[in-house]
Amino acid sequence: MLAGRLHVSTGSFAVEEVDEPHAGPGQVRIAVRAAGVCLSDVHLIQGMLKPLHLSGDSVTLGHETAGVIDEVGAGVTGLTVGERVLLQAGEIRDGVVLTRGVDYDGGWAQFAVATAGTVVPIPDTLSFEQACFVPDAVSTPWAAITTTAGVRPARAVGVWGVGGLGAHAVQLLRMIGAAPIIAIDPLPLARERAVRFGADLALDPGDPAFAALVAEATGGAGLAYAFDFAGVAPVRVQATRALAKGGRLTLVGLTDQPLTIPDGTRFSYLEQEIRGHYGSGPEHVLELLSLVALGRVEFSRSVSGTWPLAEAAEAVRRLDAKEDSPIRLILIP
């Protein structure tokens, strides 16, 4: 079968012919119908991120995966051949958090094997192209908003970076009643999209009037919550300065750069907080699927394009270059 393989030691990526996997005890195999291309995949290929628990030197990328069960291993109950499913983006084994497509083979392939407990049935009304990225692209901002930051309604929120995760954050914040929602992105296309997704205001972080505009939008109080979805050090400095008394900055975007607080005394005096965030739990994916089933949220606008699996490298290039400011590019095996 074809699979998009990263060779970690050399940093090389290619779509290659590999042996088909088969479902072992406690596992199922799915015929992959759609797999999302995430900025984390780009960072893995570029070497900015490294697998922590990978056994061996190569891995099939892709932590956002949906398809149809075509093999059921021994001992698996409650899942049947032909079911439409998505795969959770990771799992816990022996107390260690492992990420699909990073620490073990993922979904950039024609077939993918998964532990039965990470397989989630999806409704017929949800397309594979939209279902595949619910784990991570939607569940990560959802978990950051509801669990790590604990956003309350009618509180001012700033979202830095309106890409694959930030665009969904704006949509979800609107749904739960955060207000005003201020989206911050240097790309005009991303700012325009943020308004369509529910932002009350979209700002360029380089605008000389940035601080004054945030103050005006928040009645001079500043932001109760701020989210860094960009993983860029200057964003964190700017976001910290925009926080209100007791304000909370949640770091979702990943970077290896140092975290700097520009005025530590002010930060302490105003009793502000910075919290790290990574991924989501299985419950967050299930919550989102319930919301989809109830018609509270839908993701058709998030599919920015589809590409054959064989052209995965081109999809990666386009995402890295931010061509047309994509939310999610989808690989179709």
Rank of each mutant, 00 (worst) to 15 (best):
S9K: 12
F13Q: 00
F13P: 02
E17Y: 07
H22L: 06
Q27Y: 06
Q27K: 09
I30N: 10
V32I: 09
C38L: 08
C38W: 11
V42R: 00
G47A: 02
K50H: 14
V59A: 13
H63E: 12
A66S: 15
V72F: 08
A74W: 03
A74H: 10
T77P: 01
V81T: 14
E83K: 02
E83V: 06
R84Q: 11
L87N: 02
Q88P: 01
L98C: 10
T115V: 14
I122R: 01
E129R: 15
A131K: 10
P135K: 00
T140A: 08
A143D: 14
T148E: 13
A156M: 01
G158E: 03
W160D: 04
G163K: 00
G163V: 05
G166S: 13
H168N: 15
M175T: 12
P180E: 09
R191W: 07
E192V: 00
G198V: 05
P205Q: 06
A215R: 07
A215N: 11
G219N: 06
G220H: 11
A221R: 15
F229C: 09
G231M: 01
L251H: 02
T255N: 01
T260Q: 15
I261G: 13
P262E: 09
T265L: 14
R266Q: 13
F267W: 09
E273K: 04
G276L: 00
H277N: 01
P282W: 07
E287A: 15
L288F: 04
L291I: 03
G295D: 12
R296Q: 15
V297Q: 10
E298S: 13
S302Y: 03
S304H: 06
G305P: 04
W307T: 10
E311G: 11
A313W: 09
D324F: 01
L329M: 10
